[in-house]
């Protein structure tokens, strides 16, 4: 059996490298590298493993973003994806998760048939973890989020869904959407032949008209959530030294302080 797989991937700034300007409360993005979102690399890796096991399987990576997101798509092709689509249009800019999922699900509908959609659980910039489930809702398909183990047999998928204190073992049928967490696998590197292939590959770029999305459901203006203010936490000054003459007094005074402030 061969499968048709779609992977949703986002290009994100490496948030480990980001600095903030406390004066203006803004991010300093200069010189911060853009990367394939971490969980999305796990999403793509799982698709590639299926392709390894079931030759004939095809993987299409889809992203919504500015033109430079093609760099990330090229990386996905070099890892082994078969096709890549960039949804790019000013009309899509400023979308919240509701509007983002409207655009991406319209893009997926244009791609056509699929058995499995993989997304990452969470993007490291927006940090909402909402887009995966919301795409599934727009497409009317079942979802499992926080997937940490995956197996497929014909049309039946068995996954482990991570919980805070264990996991759920879940069975479902294709088509469906799964969101990947880092425990799912270890992403592979690009390979030389893949890089060469990726350079020659045409990345499809679709605008809002191409995907036929209703313009009243995408972009900043259509988004139900708005950023009202954004800022950085005040850098904290030195705290207090704990008083006490003996080691026991020091320990007791620390615990009283932590308890008083509801920290423990």
């Amino acid at each position: 059996m061969a499968y048709k797989i779609i992977v949703c991937a986002k290009q994100v700034p490496d948030t480990n490298e980001i600095k903030t300007n406390p004066e203006t409360g803004t991010l300093i993005r200069d010189g911060v590298p853009s990367i394939l979102n971490n969980d999305d690399a796990n999403a793509l890796e799982e698709a590639l493993k299926i392709k390894d096991a079931f030759p004939g399987t095809t993987i299409t990576v889809i992203t919504m973003g500015p033109p430079q997101a093609t760099e990330m798509l090229q990386e996905c092709l070099a890892m082994g994806a078969d096709d890549a689509i960039l949804l790019s249009d000013r009309a899509l800019g400023g979308s919240d998760t509701w509007a983002t999922s409207n655009a991406i699900s319209a893009g997926i509908a244009k791609v056509g048939e699929y058995d499995i959609i993989f997304a990452g659980r969470q993007a490291i910039d927006g940090d909402t973890a909402q887009v995966g489930p919301q795409i599934a809702e727009k497409l009317g398909i079942p979802q499992v989020s926080y997937v940490k183990e995956f197996a497929i047999d014909g049309n039946e998928i068995t996954v482990k869904r991570a919980l805070e204190d264990g996991y759920e073992l879940i069975k479902l049928q294709t088509p469906c959407l799964l969101t990947a967490i880092k425990e799912l696998n270890t992403p592979r590197y690009m390979y030389i032949k893949g890089i060469y292939k990726a350079m020659k590959h045409d990345i499809k770029v679709w605008n809002a008209a191409d995907i036929g999305v209703d313009l009243t459901t995408v972009g900043l203006k259509a988004s139900p959530t708005n950023v009202f203010k954004s800022f950085t936490p005040k850098p904290k000054g030195a705290g207090q030294k704990v008083a006490g003459d003996t080691d026991k007094e020091l320990a007791v005074n620390l615990l009283v302080g932590l308890k008083e402030k509801n920290i423990i």
Binding site: D96, T97, W98, G126, D127, A129, P133, K138, A162
Partner: peptide, 23 residues
């Protein structure tokens, strides 16, 4: 914002066509 809350809330919000703020 548990593993269940973050699975359920986005799906409900999308069906209601309303906004959801995360975490």
């Amino acid at each position: 914002a548990t593993h269940i809350g973050r699975d359920l809330a986005p799906r409900v919000a999308a069906r209601l066509n309303t906004g959801l703020t995360a975490d």
